[in-house]
Design a protein around this nucleic acid. Structure first.
Lengths: 162, 162
DNA sequence: AGAATTTTGTTGAGCAGTCAGCAATTGATT
DNA sequence: AATCAATTGCTGACTGCTCAACAAAATTCT
């Protein structure tokens, strides 16, 4: 057997590895689910899935002051991405920018009344899709394990710098 | 208690719902993992994560003829997105377009020698990241449940049209 | 206090995808 | 066989993000 053949087998083995396949499952499930939610939200509420995530974050603790910096960190976005996202949401009347009194670099973002109204509609749509494709397909016992595992993964990703 | 207060509580409850939180875990884990892999691949092999997914698909069964259409379906991309992706990969010398003899609309995509070489390097980088942040953080017993659950979710998503 | 460093949000340029519309080819209907 | 419909890949216009560079403000270090 020559070197070329040997390498050929190596390539095929790598492409069929269990690890590669398993990881593909995660990426695919997340991508498709997000696409579905995004489509449903745009059609029924006129907002994107990312915008819903912003509203979720902003409505969590009423009265809490959330800066763009915090939003960026929580949504895994860059600061410039966040600036533009909030631009669009402000334009759509969903949120309002409020300059921080303590730190004049910082900008707080808060939901408007309209933002809260849309949020309630959107969360309903969101829940339906999640219920149908995320909760129902998984056996109850497996579900808690799934979320446990995801928590562990997120923790590992958060702790490690590189 | 007036209507406004009642609605205010409703908003807070929705933003803190378990379902919303759990789903956030999935999206966040997938997003961050993919970002990490993408960064590592770009730095160490000069290709994107999407390009690696193409190479994985193309190297699975040697001799198999894979059209752009099939690639688009497997990667959850639009046909135009696929066209441009293959454009870039062809330019980088990773793949080659071959017109199908049977169907003159269709284009087969196959990896070049260079593509296979890069693939082997890339799969190593990919495996390291996946091993570290996807396999290791999860207890072994939970791992199989996790992948089972992800399979179920993907099946539900594949079967349903809307 | 003053200088150097870090943090915050914004902007221009670019990248990687989408959608809508297209021509070429193939398949189905009659 | 002729037409009508569906599929394949491509292109222009757009979206939503990133990265790099920046000014303004805050923090740290002498």
């Amino acid at each position: 057997m020559n070197a070329a053949t040997r390498r050929g087998e190596q390539v095929v083995r790598a492409a069929n590895s269990q690890l590669v396949h398993d990881f593909g499952l995660l990426i695919k499930a997340a991508t498709r689910l997000e696409q579905r939610i995004d489509t449903a939200l745009r059609r029924e509420c006129g907002i994107s899935h990312t915008m819903l995530e912003v509203l979720i974050r902003l409505c969590r603790k009423p009265g809490e002051e959330v800066s763009q910096r915090q939003l960026a960190d929580d949504l895994t976005l860059t600061s410039s991405g966040t600036t533009r996202l909030i631009d669009r949401m402000e334009e759509a009347g969903l949120v309002r920018r409020v300059p921080s009194p303590d730190d004049r670099r910082s900008v707080f973002v808060e939901p408007t009344d309209h933002g809260r109204t849309v949020f309630l509609q959107a969360v309903t749509v969101h829940s339906h899709v999640v219920e149908r494709y995320f909760v129902t397909p998984v056996v109850r016992d497996d579900y808690t394990r799934l979320t446990d595992a995801l928590s562990d993964i997120n923790e590992a990703l958060r702790d490690a710098a590189g």
